[in-house]
Amino acid sequence: MPKLTKFLAILFILLSFTANASTDKQDLPLAPLRIGLTPVFLDDQAAFLNKWRDYLQHKLERPVIFVQRGSYREVVDLLRDGKLEFAWLCGYPYIRNKRQFHLVAVPLYQDEPVYHSYLIVPATDTKTTSLADLRGKVFAFSDPDSNSGYLYTAYLLAKQGAMPATYFSKSFYTWSHRKVVEAIAAGLAQGGSVDGYVWDTLSRTHPELTSRTRVVNESPKFGFPPIVSSRSVSKHDIASLQEVVTQMKYDKEGAYLLNEFNLNGFVPGNPHLFDSISDMYHFVEQMRTHAAP
């Protein structure tokens, strides 16, 4: 706000004293807020994202730029390098970069800041009941930096002393939860790990896609992918964004957007929400270093 006030004051002075002054000095806009997005939600809806961006710009009273990249890692790197102010990430990269990142807000899904990881198989496969049935099959992960789309399954395998690369005949990444569902529906892979919230939301908007898959297992609750900021972002900016997103549910436009997200709102969130992910990460890392020669 002070920036804006200052700007308005300068503008006023300029206008009063030099009525016909040129325009080259009047524009000192606030630097745009760059927010990285990852496929932790359905980030492939450009029109909807434009609406959300407009909403944020309006509420924050400054330009907002959404930055999307092909993988979580690229967004994480941008955030670490200070090329983004904020990012909506998975809990897994968050806990791995806890020291560099600051927790801004956690979405509420079904009134809780948590979600599950689903193990899905093609709907035509009626036999598979657990991960054990998928040994030696082709498996689809969403992203190596995704909790629900990789870490949880890797953790389950690690507990058995196995690793994805050897347990499955082949595994691949689709770099998006939605595409995991598509890969399973097409029969490209016989099993896949997917964000439960994304699968649920897809089953609401694209039932023809999810109906071709079957959820075999649901993971325990994990902290929902949070919005984080890089440490370099000012407390004021963090507070502004936190304020805006947590207040979304109280105005009509925000409530509409949340409904489109299939979320109930945002809460400031507690870093300990992601402890279970952290535990899994450490367990898997331990196993991996042990397994390595």
Partner: peptide
């Protein structure tokens, strides 16, 4: 490696 009919031509 991959096919447009993965059910008919499974990977590997």
């Amino acid at each position: 490696f991959v096919s447009t009919k993965p059910k008919r031509f499974p990977i590997l």
